[in-house]
Design a protein around this nucleic acid. Structure first.
Length: 476
RNA sequence: GGCGCUAUCGUCUAGUGGUUAGGACGGGGCCCUCUCAAGGCCCAGGCAGGAGUUCAAUUCUCCUUAGCGCUACCA
């Protein structure tokens, strides 16, 4: 075996008929984890053979979401540019006798409703002689090309799934599925298998909704004389009501960009998605991309569908929010700062460069979203912030305002401005005026941030800087 | 209807032929404390139901039920 044969080639193959769905994103992530862990090749392939339903908006949404997640791919293809290949392979199967032309007109919706039993093939079409078939095709009669599923031979179609184990199905129960439509376009099954062969995909990792389709795909690979790839099917992501996630029914929670727009860190969201249907089996929850990559195995993938826990009242899964908070307070500051900066600047606020890192360090432990820095954190970046009721009550305490103004004056006059110096000034003042330090401490927080709760007051002074601190104390 | 897949706290999950069925989120409480958050500790909460195999089943087998998927000239 040569070295490159050890390096897997995997693909993520979305069809651009909507926004980037969170289930799709998770499929991408698992493919990516597997490829990167094994020095493999990650391929992005747009399965855009359904020209009726494809939209540019959808393609943009897929790239949007993927770019946000920050996961890379090595090769990029569009099925619509590879139709000749798909057709060529379909005709190769036809020529080999493993497929046949079906001249039956397309069924209408009502006709489909009527037949209740399992449909396997249209009578008479499998038996057409090649002369008759060629003649009718030459005469311009429309047809679909169907796979001639082996019947009455007791053939079993089987494959081994890396997640679901050995899979087996009687060929007699598989319908003669279409390879080519009457307009000459390949179907999903044909295009997908042709590309998987041509692109030398050796491990197909996709949603469990394709588990039963895989029997058809195995038949195609066999008819093409190709070694079939390995398969790994992932459990589906479903809504709390048990239904599959759909935009129509569940709204924006199904779109990746919703989480970006909700102030998620991409690594936190990746972490969350990985925990849906996969487990490192060691009780680890918060994990970096590298840790996820190291820990990923198909053995850790679950077989049952996972519920994304959202509601009308709280559209974000609480565990996702918690994870975001965990990442927010543990990620390298240098990595966090640009993301916070972008969020702050989006609100048109000015960043005090010399204290930016300190501010973020001071407040990040109490936030769970990037938005919090601009909303709850507004007093750190702007002077027009709202004074909360609870904070006003602190200031309204008897004598509080005078004390705070005095504190401001003393801080302004002090030669030094450090946590220790401010603390000394504050405590000395409290002793001198015979009040509890808490009055000044809590009062300072209220004056500086307009909030009754928040970081330690002495950290606050440093984060706000001398000028802003003094101004706010003297302005109470 | 047919075929397939699945079934452990509300949710995500670990787990074993013998365990007080473990962890996390969320909920409740306590501690810490200048407030809040973080952190620490504690509490409530679960093996879908029924048979069978076995000395012993949450674990193995079968049935039922439920959910999901496929059953298109969608992907």
């Amino acid at each position: 075996m040569v070295f490159w044969e050890l390096m897997p080639r995997v693909r993520f193959a979305p069809s651009p008929t909507g926004y980037l769905h969170i289930g799709s994103a998770r499929t991408f992530i698992f493919n990516w984890l597997y490829a990167r862990k094994n020095n493999g090749t990650m391929i992005l392939r747009l399965d855009d053979t359904d020209i009726e339903r494809n939209t540019q908006v959808s393609i943009d949404s897929i790239f949007d979401g993927l770019n946000w997640l920050g996961l890379s791919w090595d090769e990029y293809y569009r099925q619509s540019e590879r139709l000749d290949l798909h057709k060529e392979m379909a005709y190769r199967i036809l020529a080999a006798g493993a497929a046949y032309r079906d001249f039956t007109p397309a069924q209408t919706e009502e006709e489909k409703q009527e037949d209740s039993g399992p449909w396997l093939f249209h009578p008479g079409m499998r038996e057409l002689t090649s002369e008759e078939s060629d003649a009718r095709a030459a005469a311009g009669e429309p047809f679909v090309v169907r796979f001639r599923v082996p019947r009455g031979e007791g053939k079993a179609v089987k494959f081994k799934d890396s997640v679901f184990g050995d899979q087996y199905k009687k060929a007699d129960e598989i319908e003669d599925f279409a390879l080519l439509r009457s307009n000459g376009m390949p179907t999903y099954h044909m295009a997908s298998c042709a590309d998987d062969v041509d692109l030398k995909i050796d491990h197909i990792i996709r949603g469990q909704d394709h588990l039963t389709n895989t029997f058809k795909h195995v038949l195609i690979f066999e008819a093409l004389g190709e070694v079939k790839p390995k398969f790994a099917h992932l459990p589906l992501l479903i809504a709390p009501d048990g239904a599959k996630l759909s935009k129509r029914k569940h709204g924006p929670v199904v779109s990746v960009t919703t989480y970006r727009d909700a102030g998620f860190l991409p690594q936190a969201y990746i972490n969350f998605l990985c925990l849906l249907g996969w487990s490192p089996k060691n009780n680890r929850e918060q994990m970096s991309r590298q840790e996820l990559m190291d820990a990923f195995t198909f053995g850790g993938v679950n077989r049952s569908n996972a519920v994304v826990n959202f509601s009308e009242a709280d559209p974000i899964d609480p565990k996702a929010q918690w994870l975001n908070g965990q990442h927010l307070r543990t990620v390298e500051l240098a990595e966090l700062l640009p993301m916070v900066r972008a969020r702050i600047e989006a609100d048109g606020l000015a960043i005090p460069e010399e204290r930016f890192g300190l501010i973020v360090e001071t407040i990040r432990a109490r936030y769970t979203s990037l938005h919090d820095f601009a909303v709850k954190g507004r007093p750190y970046f702007a002077d027009d912030f709202v004074m909360e009721e609870a904070a006003r009550e602190r200031l309204d305490e008897p004598g509080a305002r005078e004390l705070l103004r005095e504190l401001g004056a003393r801080i302004a006059a002090s030669a030094e401005f450090t946590e220790a110096s401010v603390e000394k000034i504050l405590r000395d003042l409290a002793t001198e005026k015979d009040v509890k330090p808490g009055v000044l401490i809590n009062g300072s927080r209220a004056a500086l941030t307009g909030q009754a709760v928040g970081p330690s007051a002495f950290h606050l002074f440093m984060a706000m800087g001398r000028e802003r601190s003094v101004a706010r104390l003297e302005g109470v």
